[in-house]
Design a protein around this nucleic acid. Structure first.
Length: 630
RNA sequence: GCGCUCAUAGCUCAACUGGAUAGAGCAGCUGCCUUCUAAGCAGCAGGUUCGGGGUUCGAGUCCCUGUGGGCGUACCA
């Protein structure tokens, strides 16, 4: 804030004038005054005592007097120990309020002329979107919006992991058992339809493994226990049978994992992958059919959470890239070849390890692809920054990737950033697909939406809304509740997601903020209907609650920049929440419609308008829409 | 084993990057709806910031150490 710079400068000036000490303005410690003390801005004077010019209290007094005399913004001050609390004048706050131009207020130009690619979402096409993907999507989408609000040209990219053994498993199960079924014929959401075959494949493997064990002369009951008894309560008899089959297998040198790997289903999947790589037409056609269904299903979910992409990448098209760079790296001596033909990079000097970047058989791997796609993006877009929204389990991978690009001499490597976020846990612990605890994204969205519907039916101000508008309202508040719940938490923190608590619509939640907005809009509508005279500029005595609202508003411009620099939507969420709180307090303490005089009415009307705009804008940066009534 | 990371109220999260008496919400308790939306407001209660050292005028924050989680350390992605 400009005012802060003025204060810093004045403090420096005062130290020079009165104590002949020269101090760097940036070292002056400024902070917001804690609300239990009078004042707006606090200068901490402890560090200045080191200059040998008196006690912190004395310095505070001197500075306070100087600031009050020399800065018109400063109306009064008080000193508590080493803290100089400065109050800004009412005139200052009114000036601030009247000077706000909303379009300028809600955007910065720190990213002007810079291009940034944000890659996020990037799902596998064999699994449905789940809670973890939601955090990724919400973060990537919100960060994109925040960057755009700071003047960056943002390109949102999504990389579909559409190939590999996993999707082949779904294909095998589908080919064996679908009998012409389609999402349409079963009434299922297309991505879930495909995923069911992936799940089905797993049980095929189990069935076939049991069959093979029986074939090898083991009892079916014992074999079944071995494959499916995990995590279940077993009787003593079962346990005995289980122990028996295990030791018998060991004796005969039979390994369970190998049996599984060699089931007809697994063989078929591996064959299919080879056929896919060979471009076998039927396999490709099947692959396309299933993936198209998955995309159709994903699309519905993306629309629901208002997430869009500017560019879609498909791993099936990029998985071979990167080899040129490997060659270049070898030439430059960045990489080296081992006897077996594999290509490596030695990162031990950078406190990392030896890493393989290309297999001995010449095929590329994950890191090879990432090297390739990073390069092609740079040539395609010439971006200044490249943000990868990927969970923190891949921290090491990105350290390596960025380092490699740098060693290859790519100057844009400095602009690569891994927006690493913590996993989402359930109260019971980590989500595990094997244990069926994965929270499906679509299900979750429905559950929250339904909770909102119940609440709204009971308490909402929904007169005059059509059925369709009501449906949209439930959806809007529900999606917002979920986004807010997740974005509130700092990205790098691992978070616990309690489905029970996520449908709570009270307290520090998205609906709370939405509610404040609806409330403000409602007041504004009423004022518009009745019409009030008055002039906001003639109002000149700020109530406490009004000033608190203004103080909160004043934080927004800096926060916007900070959120972009830190890639952190939780800062915006905290702002929206605090603004809503301050506004609720204001509404409770002063009246807009029945104010002391028309000037007060007018001022509060305009202030409420600004609050509503800022709630809408800040929530918008989180990818959340807010209703005009609820 | 080595590397990275986390630990704050019963639970979920904050704490302006080293500043004042560590703050919110949920859960619990108490008030407030003939007055602009009670999805709200006001209040009570709840803490040895994992333990132990250290640096500093000042530490939840920095350093060391111990304990306990998580992740990584694949010619998987």
């Amino acid at each position: 804030m400009k005012t802060e710079q003025k204060i810093r400068a004045a403090v420096v000036q005062c130290l020079a004038d009165q104590f002949q000490k020269s101090v760097d303005p940036e070292t002056i410690s400024l902070s917001e005054t804690r609300k239990e003390f009078p004042g707006d801005i606090t200068v901490t004077t402890f560090p200045l005592a080191k200059l040998g010019i008196g006690s912190p209290e004395k310095i505070g007094e001197s500075l306070g007097n100087y600031l009050r005399e020399n800065l018109s913004e400063v109306s009064e001050f008080n000193v508590v120990k080493g803290f100089l609390n400065i109050s800004l004048s009412e005139a200052y706050w009114f000036d601030f309020f009247h000077s706000i131009k909303i379009e300028d207020f809600v955007r910065s130009e720190v990213g002007k002329g810079q291009k940034v690619i944000v890659e996020f979402s990037s799902p596998n096409t064999n699994k449905p979107l789940h809670l973890g993907h939601l955090r990724n999507n919400f973060l990537g989408d919100s960060v994109s919006r925040i960057l755009a609000a700071n003047g960056f040209e943002v390109i949102k990219a999504c990389l579909y992991n559409d190939r590999g053994i996993a999707i082949c498993k779904s294909m095998v199960a589908f080919r064996r058992e679908a009998n012409g079924a389609t999402p349409g014929s079963t009434g299922k959401k297309p991505d879930h339809f495909v995923v069911d075959y992936y799940v089905r494949f797993a049980s095929m493997v189990i069935e076939e493994t049991i069959a093979e064990l029986v074939n090898l002369g083991f009892e079916e009951k014992a074999a079944t226990l071995l494959l499916q008894g995990k995590g279940k309560d077993l009787t003593e008899e079962d346990k005995a049978a289980l122990g028996q089959i295990k030791s018998a297998m060991k004796e005969r040198g039979i390994e369970l994992d190998q049996l599984k790997e060699n089931t007809p289903a697994m063989k078929e999947a591996r064959e299919m992958l080879l056929e896919w790589e060979a471009g076998q037409p039927e396999v490709i056609a099947l692959w396309k059919k299933l993936n198209d269904w998955v995309y159709e299903g994903f699309k519905a979910t993306y629309e629901r959470i208002y997430v869009t992409f500017d560019h879609l990448y498909y791993e099936s098209q990029t998985y071979l890239t990167g080899n040129d760079l490997i060659a270049e790296g070898l030439e430059k001596g960045v990489f080296f070849t081992k006897e077996d033909g594999s290509v490596w990079i030695d990162l031990t000097a950078d406190k990392l390890d030896m890493k393989v970047v290309r297999r001995a058989d010449g095929t590329s791997m994950y890191i090879t692809q990432d090297i390739g796609t990073a390069e092609s993006r740079a040539t395609e877009y010439g971006m200044n920054k490249s943000v990868y929204v990927v969970a923190d389990e891949q921290d090491y991978h990105f350290k390596v990737l960025f380092l490699i690009m740098k060693k290859l001499g790519r100057e844009w490597a400095d602009g690569m950033y891994h927006l690493s976020y913590g996993m989402v846990d359930l109260p019971s612990g980590r989500m595990k697909s094997r244990e069926g605890t994965v929270v499906d994204a679509d299900d979750l969205l429905n559950v929250v939406r339904d909770a909102v519907e119940v609440e709204t039916q009971e308490k909402g101000r929904i007169e005059g809304l059509s059925d369709q508008q009501l449906q949209e309202l439930y959806e809007m508040i529900g999606v917002g509740a979920l986004k807010f719940f997740i974005l509130r938490v700092k990205p790098d923190k691992r978070m616990v997601f309690d489905p029970e608590e996520s449908v709570n619509l009270y307290g520090d939640t998205g609906p709370f903020v939405s509610y404040a907005h609806a409330r403000a809009r409602s007041i504004l509508r009423k004022v518009d209907e009745m019409g009030i005279g008055g002039e906001s500029r003639k109002y000149a005595s700020l109530a406490d609650a009004e000033k608190s609202v203004l103080r909160q508003i004043a934080k927004y411009p800096d926060l916007l920049v900070e959120a972009a620099q830190k890639y952190d939507p939780s800062l915006i969420a905290a702002f929206a929440l605090d603004l809503a709180k301050e506004f609720n307090r204001m509404v409770h303490e002063v009246h807009v419609l029945r104010a002391e005089n028309p000037d007060a009415s007018r001022f509060r009307y305009e202030l409420s308008q600004l609050v509503a705009e800022l709630i809408r804008h800040s929530m918008g940066l989180l990818g959340i829409k807010v209703p005009d009534q609820m």
